[in-house]
Amino acid sequence: MTEALRTPASQQAVQERLPPELLPPGEGFVGILKRDLLLAFRHRGELANPLIFFIMVTALIPIAVGPQKALLSQLAPGMIWVMALLGTLLSSDSLFQSDYADGTLEQLIISPQPLWLLVLAKISAHWLVTGLPITLAAPILGLMLALPEAGYATLVLGLAMGTATFSLFGAIGAALTVALRKGGVLLSLIVMPLYFPVLIFGSAAVQRVVDGGSAGAPLALLGAVFAFALLLSPFATAASLRAGING
């Protein structure tokens, strides 16, 4: 190939060209991951939105149910998990929307790199800018909602896996609704049922530790759901994008 390029154009006119060698699959993953993180950095104003939403709505709970410490600490594990779910869900909508609008999604779909890997890169970037901040901010909310001390480590560990699972399943919904104008609400409707197991195991893990038990079983189950989502979602999302891009 390189030799063919070096010969002067006039000598090899209308000569069959050799095909270029394929790039290793990791290249595209790194490229898209870097690109999306850079984009998130350029739009850092919007970056904080899910996090602020997460914190503000949690602050509404004591206002709504009253400031009694006993009541709040009982509600805390479940409430933090529900808010984390909503925060991630709200941001899932934008996962493929701008790529669709400016035509870069089409470039990803017809790139020689495996689409599921590029999709995984996009989901990873999404988790790094939404799920991870929410996970790290969760202890602050635990303080605000009087979460008993024993629960913090489990909460953070569970949320790290849980928000990643939310992002993975959310990507399927985002891909299916990418070409629809009112995709946001629809996305919530179609992926919400998939979030049930995560919410169940995640909040149960915290609850158990707070009650003095061991969180091993629910955390292991949460990990299993996460592993399952990691296997399923890139392929389902890639298939959905190929189908959904045509409106």
């Binding site: 399927i172 299916l176 609704t177 070409a179 629809l180 009112k182 629809l186 179609i190 049922p193 998939l194 049930f196 197991p197 169940i200 195991f201 189950l221 759901v225 399952f228 399923l232 389902a236 298939a239 959905s240 189908a243 959904g244 045509n246 409106g247």
Partner: peptide, 29 residues
């Protein structure tokens, strides 16, 4: 929500399949 029928068919099929593999997990949980 889709205007194109063929696309709607494919999208719904994928969603139904994703739902199907998730049903046992949801039920167990």
């Amino acid at each position: 929500s889709f205007s194109g029928r063929d696309t709607a068919g494919k999208a719904c099929a994928i969603l139904a399949l994703v739902g199907t593999v998730n049903i046992p997990i949801i039920y167990k949980s």
